[in-house]
C-alpha cells in the first residue's frame, strides 16, 4: 500500500515535469506540442550515450541532455511552428504530430529499434527505509526534482520580469507587444524551458523504467498531456496536481484492479473530471469585462 503510494507519487512526479512543458507551451502559444513526448526520448538517448559511450558521470550526462533538448526545442519551434503562427490551430496540431513522427524516425535511424537498457544512475545512493519497505533513491530524487522545479518555476513566473512577461504574452500577445515585449523571443524561451524540463523527465523516467527505444516518449507524453488537461491546462500548479494524481491512480489501478486496464482507468478518470469540470481541476474560465 505504502510502496504503491510512493511509486505512484514518483511516477506522477515525472508526469508532472512533462506536463509542465505541455502546459507552459499551451499557455503561451495556444498549441498542443505533441512532439514534447519525443523530446523526452531524445533526452533519454543523449544521457544514455553520454554515460555508456563517453563514460561521462551522470550529472554531466543530465546537463548534456538538457542542453541538447533545449536547443532542440528552440529549433523545432523556429522551423516547424513559428511559420504557422497565424495558421489555424488544426494545421499546427498536424505539424506537431508530424514533428513527433519525425523525431521518432530520426531516433530509429541513429539508435535503431533495439531496446537499450538505461543504467541505474542512482545505484550508489542508499534507499530510505520506511516501515517494512525501502524507498528507492530514484523515487526520492524524482519527487525532490519535481518540488524544486515547481518552486523555481513559480518564483520565475511571479517574481522575475521575463517570467511576468511570459504570463503577459500568454494572456494577450498584442497588448504584450505594446509593452515592448518581444513575443517571438518569449515563445522561444518557453519552448526552451519546457524542453529542458523534458530532458530531466527523460532521465528520471528511464532510470525508473530502464528500457529505452524510439517510442519511449510517446505514452508518457500522452499521459502527461492528460495530466495537464486533468489539472487545468495552462496552470503550473494544475500540472503538478494532475501529474501526481494520474501517477497514483495508474499505480493503484495496476496493483488493485487490473494491470491491463490501468491505462483505461486513467483515461476514464480524465473523462469524468472533464465532464464535471471542463476546465480541469485548477483551470479557470476566462471572463472579460467590457
Amino acid at each position: 500500500m505504502l510502496a504503491n503510494l510512493i511509486n505512484g507519487i514518483s511516477l506522477g512526479s515525472v508526469y508532472a515535469i512533462i506536463a509542465l512543458g505541455y502546459t507552459m507551451v499551451y499557455g503561451i502559444a495556444k498549441m498542443l506540442n505533441f512532439a514534447h513526448g519525443d523530446v523526452i526520448m531524445v533526452g533519454g538517448y543523449i544521457a544514455f550515450c553520454s554515460i555508456m559511450y563517453l563514460g561521462w558521470p551522470p550529472a554531466l550526462a543530465v546537463i548534456a541532455a538538457m542542453v541538447v533538448c533545449t536547443v532542440l526545442g528552440i529549433v523545432i519551434e523556429r522551423l516547424a511552428y513559428k511559420p504557422l503562427r497565424n495558421a489555424t490551430s488544426l494545421a499546427v496540431l498536424i505539424t506537431a504530430i508530424g514533428v513527433s513522427y519525425f523525431l521518432q524516425n530520426v531516433a530509429l535511424l541513429i539508435w535503431s529499434a533495439n531496446t537499450k537498457v538505461f543504467p541505474n544512475i542512482f545505484e550508489k545512493l542508499p534507499g530510505i527505509p520506511l516501515g517494512d519497505t525501502t524507498i528507492a533513491p530514484v523515487n526520492v530524487i524524482t519527487v525532490l526534482a519535481n518540488i524544486v522545479i515547481m518552486i523555481v518555476l513559480t518564483l520565475f513566473t511571479t517574481k522575475t520580469k521575463m517570467g511576468k512577461a511570459m504570463r503577459a504574452v500568454s494572456e494577450d500577445k498584442g497588448a504584450a507587444t505594446l509593452m515592448g515585449i518581444n513575443v517571438n523571443r518569449t515563445i522561444s524561451l518557453t519552448f526552451a524551458i519546457g524542453s529542458g524540463l523534458a530532458a530531466i523527465a527523460g532521465v528520471l523516467l528511464c532510470t525508473a523504467y530502464p528500457t529505452l527505444m524510439p517510442t519511449t516518449g510517446a505514452m508518457p507524453g500522452i499521459k502527461a498531456f492528460t495530466a495537464a488537461v486533468f489539472g487545468g491546462i495552462g496552470s503550473i500548479p494544475g500540472a503538478m496536481l494532475g501529474g501526481i494524481l494520474l501517477g497514483v491512480i495508474e499505480i493503484f489501478g495496476k496493483a488493485y484492479i487490473s494491470t491491463q486496464l490501468s491505462d483505461a482507468i486513467v483515461f476514464a478518470v480524465l473523462i469524468i473530471v472533464l465532464l464535471v469540470k471542463p476546465t480541469g481541476l485548477l483551470g479557470h474560465k476566462v471572463h472579460e469585462k467590457v
Binding site: 520580469k161 511576468k164 512577461a165 504570463r167 494572456e171 497588448a175 479557470h284 476566462v286
Partner: peptide, 12 residues
C-alpha cells in the same frame, strides 16, 4: 492583463 495584479500590469 486580466490574471495579473494591478502592480504587475504596471510593471509590464
Amino acid at each position: 492583463f486580466q490574471h495579473m495584479t494591478v502592480l504587475e500590469n504596471l510593471e509590464m
